[in-house]
Amino acid sequence: MYIHERENWTNFVWDNDKLSPVLASVRHLQGRLLGRMESLGFDFIERATLESLILEVVDTSRIEGEFINPELVRSSIARKLGIENADFVQTPRNIEGIVDVILDATQNFDKPLTEIRLLGWHHSLFQTGFSGYQQIDVAKYRSGGMKVVSGIFGREKIHFEAPSADRVPHEMEQFLNWLNSEKRLDLVLKSIIAHFWFVTIHPFDDGNGRIARAILDMWLAKSDNSKIRFYSLSNQIFKEHKHYNNIIEKAQKGTSDITLYLEWFLGCFERALMASEQNLEIILDKAHFWDKHKSTNINDRQRLVINYLYDNYGKEVGFLRTSTYAKLTKCSSDTALRDLQDLVAKEMLKAEDSGKKTNYIIISPKNIRIPKIADEKTSVSS
């Protein structure tokens, strides 16, 4: 039996004694980090918010198996937020759409989430009327059944079956009424419950996960009472996406006691906030770096690669070699070498001899330690 088949299934209950310690820790981390952000000054707040929003947009898409170009996301967000010196780059509709949704959720968090607004988000995600090669209902609730499945054709595994289509309008009306009127719950808890409630109704043909996480972002912004973004929960969820899928599936097959679901999600949020402390150091270093070199003339290839090094701090690689530069920028080895030597001459990178090869490393204004991970492990996506 799925949870939505139970009578009064949305009368959720949980064990406060189990949740209180981690909720208190989360609230403490939120306050500490937001206070630190607010002390940095407008320019750094703007840049840190930009970097956090880029992570959110890229990783909420990665959770669904869609890999989008962070540089295109950067250009789109910077342009829409009116950030100075934002380059105009033509971006695909799918990127513009998810950027619009995340920005509306986090920057207009103080407005009610109405059905019209929600349908607008769905239209932003699927402006062509298609999900891949399949035509879907856009800006309207689904008209058919919905199953979450995995596996190859003929041997699929059904993880969840959503409420029938005829139930969706009523279920969504109840959900939105609760979302906009319930005032007693802690807003962090409310955001996590809202995510589960929405994804269990699964009201659309596609995009339910991304919209559920946008709702989560919106109510977390309410809990901060700030448009400043200093963490990305989707980034942490992507790191733990197997656990994320499993805990949702387990809760959807359980009872109205959602303690385990809330406990896992609060823990995930706590880990996201702790990771953001390190991310903030990188963001600040990156901001200082570009401020120091704001008058330095470099080309688009060089800018892309420096952003790549910062964006992949602690993930893939902390240095570049000529061959990696050439792959990332799709240029010849000779051009890559000239670009890298130019960056060394302009004191943006330093060259370190590594036996037969040369490693190029960012000259960090704040002297953060860039990890050195074997170059052959570097993943270069097209």
Rank of each mutant, 00 (worst) to 15 (best):
362 I>Q: 07
154 G>T: 05
140 K>V: 15
269 F>Q: 04
21 P>V: 10
86 A>M: 13
36 R>M: 00
122 H>F: 08
314 G>Y: 06
288 H>V: 09
116 I>L: 06
315 K>H: 10
9 W>E: 01
140 K>Q: 15
99 V>L: 01
278 Q>F: 09
252 Q>G: 05
29 L>F: 07
11 N>R: 05
167 R>L: 14
189 L>W: 05
358 T>R: 15
301 R>W: 06
217 D>H: 10
11 N>D: 12
315 K>E: 07
10 T>A: 02
28 H>P: 00
367 N>D: 15
61 S>C: 11
2 Y>I: 13
110 D>G: 10
123 H>M: 11
307 N>H: 15
139 A>H: 08
336 A>T: 04
326 A>I: 00
184 R>G: 10
197 W>Q: 04
286 K>Y: 02
302 Q>C: 09
66 E>G: 11
64 E>S: 14
256 S>M: 08
29 L>Q: 05
149 V>Q: 06
133 Y>E: 15
23 L>D: 01
16 N>F: 04
286 K>H: 04
126 F>C: 07
304 L>W: 03
154 G>N: 12
95 I>A: 03
61 S>G: 10
196 F>D: 04
325 Y>G: 00
134 Q>A: 14
123 H>Y: 13
150 S>P: 03
103 L>E: 08
132 G>L: 13
166 D>W: 08
251 A>T: 15
89 V>I: 15
48 A>P: 02
238 F>D: 15
361 I>N: 03
333 S>N: 06
140 K>D: 14
3 I>R: 13
162 A>Y: 03
115 E>C: 03
45 I>K: 02
310 Y>A: 04
22 V>P: 00
289 F>I: 13
336 A>F: 01
60 T>R: 05
165 A>G: 07
332 S>V: 11
15 D>L: 04
166 D>R: 09
42 F>I: 10
33 L>C: 00
39 S>N: 03
164 S>R: 14
235 N>Q: 12
190 K>C: 04
186 D>K: 07
114 T>L: 04
189 L>E: 07
157 K>V: 10
19 L>D: 01
61 S>L: 03
147 K>L: 07
125 L>E: 02
305 V>D: 00
249 E>R: 09
354 S>E: 15
244 Y>M: 09
203 P>H: 01
174 Q>Y: 06
293 H>N: 14
148 V>F: 06
378 T>E: 05
276 S>W: 12
112 P>I: 06
327 K>P: 00
377 K>M: 05
308 Y>E: 03
49 T>C: 09
381 S>T: 14
244 Y>F: 12
69 N>P: 06
259 T>N: 03
104 D>E: 08
261 Y>T: 10
76 S>H: 09
372 K>R: 13
147 K>M: 10
74 R>K: 15
40 L>G: 02
44 F>C: 02
159 H>C: 07
368 I>Y: 08
13 V>F: 00
111 K>N: 12
42 F>M: 06
78 A>R: 11
16 N>I: 11
350 K>H: 11
333 S>H: 06
130 F>H: 13
243 H>S: 13
